Simulated assay, not measured.
Amino acid sequence: MNPLTTVQTVIDALTANITAARPEPTVDKLLIGDPNAPVSGIVTTFMPTLSIARQAASLGANLVIGHEGLFFSHHERLDGSSEGEIERIKRQQLEALEVAIFRLHDGIHRYSPDGITEGLVAKLGWSDHVREYRPEACLLDIPSAPLRDIAEEIKTRLGLACLRISGRPETVFSRVALLAGYRGGGTLTIPLLESKDADLVIYGEGPEWETPEYVREAARIGRQCGLIVLGHAESEDPGMERLAESLSGLFPHIPVRHLREEASLRIL
């Protein structure tokens, strides 16, 4: 017989892999639910929306592990302000589902290597092309291909309707810097391009007046330089999918699934 697995048991397993200190205060916490409740099923997801929680409940899962928060901000309210209407209704409906929700953000980014980045690398089929994992980026040497072809392959592998690029579509690249999530700011990406650690940067999102403008000017000047922008959720969802695979190995007696929410922004 398997020992009783509680919500806290799963949380402890998730936090055991953390190899670096989390920010203080960390955003990783049980947002909804009882830590002592027995776990009947686990769902991982990037964004723990009401829809995802309802799907989890319908599947018999009572623990959702999300990467981002519930209430439209990176940090929970710390100033004592009152709940907004949508926040209040969402909280009430989540509590009625009796599904616990744990946020794993800071911790999984401090796995070695970063669990979100590693999941993205695997989803892209590039695990054998890794040159170096750094805390903020993965450096890769992929087979040489035009920017246009690399972008199309990424769209296929990640199941994306679209992505955005900067640089000449016909330019051939092989040295890649991959940065998941909100790591597309110039302070992280431009040094990688200047040092020639990479000539193609791929990231989730970042300020549009920094890296995209650098790449545009560099390409016009004649420097071989490219950028692919995936979207924040699109770059981090594969890491949470990979987490589900890991949890299946740790808790083989518990059904574990990954659920992907539809894109919050659509193209007209």
Rank of each mutant, 00 (worst) to 15 (best):
Y111H: 10
K123D: 11
R88W: 08
D106T: 02
S81V: 11
L104D: 00
L94H: 04
K123M: 13
Q93F: 04
H109N: 11
S112I: 09
L124M: 12
K90Q: 10
F102E: 01
R103W: 00
I108V: 12
K90W: 03
L124I: 13
Q93V: 07
D114F: 05
S82P: 09
K90P: 04
D106F: 00
R103A: 00
L97Q: 02
G125Q: 15
R103E: 00
I86S: 11
P113E: 13
V121N: 12
S112G: 07
I101D: 02
E95V: 05
H105D: 11
Y111V: 07
I116N: 03
P113M: 12
E118Y: 09
G119T: 10
L104P: 00
G125C: 15
E95L: 05
H105F: 10
E83Q: 13
E118M: 10
G115T: 07
G115S: 07
D114T: 05
V99H: 04
E87V: 14
A100D: 03
V121W: 11
S81Q: 12
L104V: 03
Q93D: 13
I116H: 04
I101K: 01
G107C: 08
I89L: 15
A122N: 15
Q92L: 13
G119M: 11
K90N: 05
S81F: 11
V99N: 05
P113A: 12
H105R: 13
H109V: 05
E118D: 14
S81P: 06
L120I: 06
L97D: 03
L104C: 06
I101R: 00
E95T: 01
V121I: 15
G115M: 08
E95D: 05
D114S: 05
T117S: 07
T117R: 03
R91T: 05
E87I: 14
V121R: 13
E83Y: 07
H105W: 09
I89N: 12
G107S: 09
T117L: 10
S82F: 13
R103V: 01
I86R: 11
I89P: 03
L104Y: 03
K90L: 12
I108W: 08
L104K: 01
K123R: 15
H105N: 14
L94C: 05
H109F: 02
Q92K: 14
T117W: 02
I108E: 11
G119S: 09
G84Y: 04
E87M: 14
L94Q: 04
I86N: 08
G107N: 11
E95H: 02
G107V: 07
A122P: 08
G115H: 08
I116T: 06
R110S: 07
L124C: 09
S82R: 14
G119H: 10
H109S: 06
R91S: 05
R110M: 06
E95S: 02
L124N: 08
G115Q: 10
